[in-house]
Amino acid sequence: MFFEIYRTELITTGIIVLVLLIIRFLVHTLVRKIGRKSEINEARIKLINRYISATFLIIALLIEAFVFGAEFKEMAVIFSSVFAVIGIGLFAIWSILSNVTSGIIMFFSFPYKVGDKVKIHDKDFPIEAIIEDIRAFQLHLRCDNGDLVTYPNNLLLQKAVTLVEKDAIEGFIDDDSNSV
């Protein structure tokens, strides 16, 4: 009975899900290619792909609501209410969102990678260190004295950064592997 009543909607749903899965697969493949070409850490590639999957899920739910008969006015009321609540909550954590957004921007256009030694020109706290890890919220930088510094992604995009030595960590890793 259910399948007879909603046959058209279910067929449309199947087509939409199939199309979105194909597009998602193509976008994931493209992100992987960009990441590998830019020699980006596999964990960062997976993180960006998770963001993409979440975006496609939201798009699919929105499309499905219209397929099953939701009207624009109803959806507008729901989304305006949800976004108002989310907006109030996100205002309190705007710096976290700023760091995540910066992490996504850095994935596609950050000229440095893990292992590079960089100098961050910050007048209050200048840093010269090796990039140990690039995460969603911050970079892990290892200073020459062995200190681990976590530096927020959004601040890194606001400061001048100089490449001191490309793949500075490779020599360190090779020296350790030869000593064993």
Rank of each mutant, 00 (worst) to 15 (best):
F79M: 03
P126N: 05
V85G: 11
D133G: 01
L155F: 11
E165D: 14
I23P: 00
K73Y: 02
F107R: 06
N41Q: 15
E39F: 08
F172W: 12
I105H: 10
A168Q: 14
E4R: 15
N49Y: 04
I45E: 01
I15Y: 08
N154M: 13
R44W: 12
R135H: 05
L90K: 04
K73N: 05
D133T: 10
F91C: 02
L21V: 04
L97V: 02
S98P: 02
Y112T: 10
G103L: 01
S177V: 10
Y151H: 14
S179C: 04
F56N: 08
L155D: 09
D122P: 02
K119L: 07
P152A: 14
T8Q: 07
V118D: 09
G103T: 01
G89E: 00
F137G: 05
H121M: 06
R50T: 15
I130S: 03
L157F: 03
V27I: 12
K113T: 06
L30K: 08
F79L: 13
A43E: 14
F108Q: 02
T55M: 09
W94Y: 09
E74W: 03
R24D: 01
I40Q: 13
R24K: 05
F56M: 10
V19C: 00
S98V: 07
L90A: 05
L97A: 03
I15N: 04
V161K: 13
I22H: 01
R142K: 15
S95C: 00
S109F: 06
